[in-house]
């Protein structure tokens, strides 16, 4: 008796449909399509497109958040960037992690967010994330092993590769 029928969940979505201007033909709203159809559609969209779709209404906000997503290839590297500090009126150098996820590129500020927060944010946006191939690329920098463990905990990764470029780095290790 306490079970909610699927149709009850669908009604709020239908209520949101506005009458189309000057429509002569019977038309249909995107949100009237079954959820599995919309999920198929999202598989073809980039993460940034998904994020923007998410901000259009509550129904999409929920749908995108509940979607499992997967990426083909993640390349993670560390870069130094110039940051301008308004209060002190100076610019300083800062290390950030640059994550190239398929066609999208994210910069993560170590100091403010940290890797763990990044993972949490990612997982809050989607129900689960699969990365088929993850490459960690190190030129002159060191990366803490905790980060790698964290990464493995937060995402399902099929293959993890390390690219180490310089001899100096190996000496450092």
């Amino acid at each position: 008796e306490s079970m909610i029928h699927v149709s009850q969940l669908i009604i709020p979505l239908r209520n949101m449909i506005l009458p189309k201007k000057n429509s002569q033909m019977q038309t249909m709203h995107l949100l009237e399509l079954p959820h599995d159809v919309l999920r198929e559609l999202m598989k073809l969209m980039s993460i940034n497109d998904c994020m923007r779709l998410r901000r259009t209404c509550r129904a999409f906000e929920k749908l995108v958040a509940a979607t499992h997503t997967s990426f083909g290839h993640a390349v993670i590297s560390i870069e130094e960037i110039q940051v301008f500090e308004e209060q002190k009126n100076t610019s300083l150098k800062k290390s950030v992690a640059v994550v190239n996820l398929d066609q999208d590129r994210f910069k993560i500020d170590f100091t403010e967010f940290g890797y763990e927060q990044f993972g949490r944010l990612m997982n809050r946006m989607f129900g689960g994330i699969l990365i088929r191939e993850c490459t960690i690329s190190l030129r002159h920098e060191c990366m803490h092993i905790d980060f790698v463990l964290q990464l493995a905990r937060l995402f399902k990764i099929n293959l993890l590769t390390f690219l180490v470029y310089s001899d100096r780095l190996l000496q450092k290790v």
């Binding site: 189309k20 033909m25 038309t27 249909m28 399509l33 159809v37």
Partner: peptide, 13 residues
């Protein structure tokens, strides 16, 4: 029109 595209997508599904 987009509404008809959705109908067509629903039918194809």
């Amino acid at each position: 029109e987009f509404g008809r595209l959705c109908q067509l997508m629903g039918a194809a599904n």
